[in-house]
Write a protein that binds this DNA or RNA. Sequence first.
RNA 1: GCGGGUGUAGCUUAGUGGUAAAGCACUAGCCUUCCAAGCUAGCUAUGAGGGUUCGAUUCCCUUCACCCGCUCCA
Length: 513
Amino acid sequence: MKLEDKLMTVDMKDIVALCKRRGFVFPASDIYGGINGFWDFGPLGVELKNNLRDLWWKHMVLCPPIGPDGTPVEIVGLDSAIIQNPKAWEASGHVGGFSDPMVDCKETKLRYRADHLIILHQEQGNPQDLRAVTFVEGTSEEDISKRLKKLGFSPNISDYKTFKFFDFPYVSENLDKIFGPDAKEKGTLTPPKQFNLMFHTFVGATAGEDNKVYLRPETAQGIFLNFKNVLDSTRVRVPFGIAQVGKAFRNEVTPRNFIFRSREFEQMEMEWFCHPDEAKKWFDFWIEQRKKFWLSLGLSEASLDCRKHGQDELSHYAKTGEGTYDIEYKFPFTAPGFGELEGIAHRSNFDLTQHEKHSGVKMEYMDPVDTSKRFIPHVIEPAAGLTRGVLALICEAYTVDANRPSGMYMNFHPALAPKKAAILPLTAKEEHVPLATKLYLELREEFAVDLDIKQNIGKRYARQDEIGTPYCFTIDNDTVTDGTVTVRDRNTMAQERISMDSVAGYLREKMRA
RNA sequence: GCGGGUGUAGCUUAGUGGUAAAGCACUAGCCUUCCAAGCUAGCUAUGAGGGUUCGAUUCCCUUCACCCGCUCCA
């Protein structure tokens, strides 16, 4: 089926319904009516998530890729605390810069980032006659003139003083006299609202400002905080990486699109420390590696996009250097557009420098061979969303097929499928069950497998199709006489006979990613 | 945060100001030698709270969740 056709037929509603029906993803706190921005992974969802996480870990830490010089790169793992000293988040810029004050326009229902607004003000003798008009930064002089004229003011921009929104004297008190960027009336802007995207809580039994702490909004900082510890406790040498998988929390203004943007989510991040002069080389290397990784999981080339960030969308730590690349996936709810799956950012030496300043601890790296070479390493960060990755895998796998009883199947790569195989005695009578049980007991030592005895064989195949089990092994009368079983392939529904002894080897072969 | 929509069983749909109905799924049993067949029995629902009323799933208010659009999104 062509991708376009698939997108026509696959509806997010069907995917969400399947996820709940079969135990991939449940609404969090379901029996209490749910809670906005939170989701739970069910029995099959957690298997899928763990499989993706383990493959990532294998690709990063256990068996990292071969570097440009032909030898494997060096990456070590870490699992840092979700709550760190709050100074860490001041240093990282999250306390000050992670929350953007917003201004709403009551008339037009539009919302603006206050730091993107400028105010043009014309001095008047009478304070009651304050002439102040707000514009979105970057509005052309021509458009500004036009709008000023329309409001009955002088169209000559040089008659005005320009302020950043927050630099305007007593801006909050004067809002009733200021024109919004798109408003016809003055005084329609609300005071700037602070959106603090970091969750906070308190350490200790009493709550107060002095023991306020934050839940990490990214796992990366835990890595930077341990940069020295890792250097001092292991024999790694620059260039090397530190990898971490874990939960992160963001108080998103608008959680949307199922588990795509949730307030509690999981990240897979690796910080690659290298010499500043080599940053470009490693940046390109990791973009290539990360793209290959997602393709190897079965995401199609057509539904993946690699895109460089524009200057205006760069985060506070990525303003300089090589910038940021996004690996994006064409989700049903973004199509024909794409949604971010992984960002590869050149964080330069921003974070280490910040932590050196705030903590007073030297973050300089000394080359162990040439001790005259000292520098604060630059960082290339491939940061992937584990939660988003699971969603992409689910969306990619969901395949409509009117020619089978279930009407669809989940086309997971065997290495990712929550269940690798089902063992099905053709009937619940005779000698089929004992033989099936024997095979099941053998396979469960090595693979996640199901033994399903009840109901007719068609229903059981259909159930396995819905959860994406790649293989079904069926025991019938021939098994009793010649020791062979049928293998039923999920995608083609074709069957072949193999000997019961070779089933484990057959599965092992298919699991290779 | 704004605007619009939706909310009855696991799913899809009925229905009513007065005992909430069905199909599929699910569970148990029978039957069944390869793709949701058949028979029997069983389980499960008006998102939450309040108001009006003798009585509310139905009318009203509030709230919550989800979907769409806007906004936002290291």
